[in-house]
Design a protein around this nucleic acid. Sequence first.
DNA 1: CGCAACAAGATTGTATACGATTTTGTGCCG
DNA 2: CGGCACAAAATCGTATACAATCTTGTTGCG
Lengths: 228, 228
Amino acid sequence: MNKIETKGWTSDTVVSDLERAIHEHRLPPGTKLGEDELGDAYGISRTIVRAALLALSHRHLVELKRNRGAFVAQPSVREAREVFEARSLLEPRTAHSAALRMTDADLRLLNENIRDEHAALDAGENGRALFLSGQFHVEIARIADQSTIETFISELISRSSLIIALYWRRRAALCETQAHHALLDAFAQRDGDAAEQLMKSHLLDLVASLDLRNVSQPPTSLREALQR
Amino acid sequence: MNKIETKGWTSDTVVSDLERAIHEHRLPPGTKLGEDELGDAYGISRTIVRAALLALSHRHLVELKRNRGAFVAQPSVREAREVFEARSLLEPRTAHSAALRMTDADLRLLNENIRDEHAALDAGENGRALFLSGQFHVEIARIADQSTIETFISELISRSSLIIALYWRRRAALCETQAHHALLDAFAQRDGDAAEQLMKSHLLDLVASLDLRNVSQPPTSLREALQR
DNA sequence: CGCAACAAGATTGTATACGATTTTGTGCCG
DNA sequence: CGGCACAAAATCGTATACAATCTTGTTGCG
């Protein structure tokens, strides 16, 4: 693997970089994250890498197996349900708050986000589109001016990306930008109740688009199947 | 400081130990947690201590200041409001779910918890009473069978303990065991709606018992006042 | 030929050494 | 005597060395 260099990588920037790579499905669930490998890639020692992996494990994006190494998490069906249950408690009412605090600048930002997502989809950059789609939700929490809830939602969004990687049913494009459009309309009218309802429906739609039957955990490779 | 020893302290056990000490107000907000000091106390190297402090900082129980050290967090008024806002989104509906899943064994456990809290109060062990009071809330999330939400609530409860340490108005005893009693009754009747309402009120009462006016951040010592 | 025991290699876990930064203490100069 | 500059000490940040554990490959026996 070639170096990334050109930056002064700190623990936090490595976390951001890896989180984004996971979120964009460039690092699929189950991928082994070797400490030496990462250290070489970023041009830092294992000390920093370990701090980053520890942080990612606290966000449930990476699973640390003692004496075995770090792996991109593979959320179980159970965990997938829990994540969306948590989102359904946090996001609708947060969207409500956001609608009441929405500024024109915020609206422009959300609009741009949707536009960029469309552009990414057209360009075939599905990973980037998925990332932007998640950013839309995090941005709402930021607008609601609730940084504590924003932290939770941000984690849940990243985990949702892993869940989508594992359990997404339709192989077609993410045809959910309509939901975001509808939300944007509610925000534009500062209609808290509408935003809350739309968000609730949006999350239900998302869960419905997943295959969460307890049948088979699809391993990403033969190798991964044996590691469990 | 004398050693604790007698245990094989891992990073996780140190985290639990420190978290409990913080939760019980044995380590008040602003307390400096020196790495060498902790390493000596537990008989481990700074490597493990740092991993533990990193974990605690991710839970917002410890603040890491670069090249300055780790300190028990001192939540701002802003942060205090956010924590209780998050709790108000998560806990009522989680109590609802818990009520519907409640077993007799669960009821006994919650009952014991309340009894122990009373005993601790009578014995003047206010820290332990506060810890048990928090455990009550976490236990509800466990009974609701939502480990993801439980993790969030657990963090919020610990942060609430710091908030109470800083902004608690009445210096008298924590006369909130009645609220827990009322909740227990609702649980015993498997009345989800009642439990949800009671939890909502309970949280509102808690916030009301705090002094969250933006006046003065009471520093724990002269020293701390200058560090900010 | 198959399987088990053992040895070699690779990877993580922990401790420690060293450098950077901040804090604290001292002394010179105004 | 007060204040600034510089030096000493303490503490954190990072890298690296070594130990523990797991994985993998090999060999010998049944």
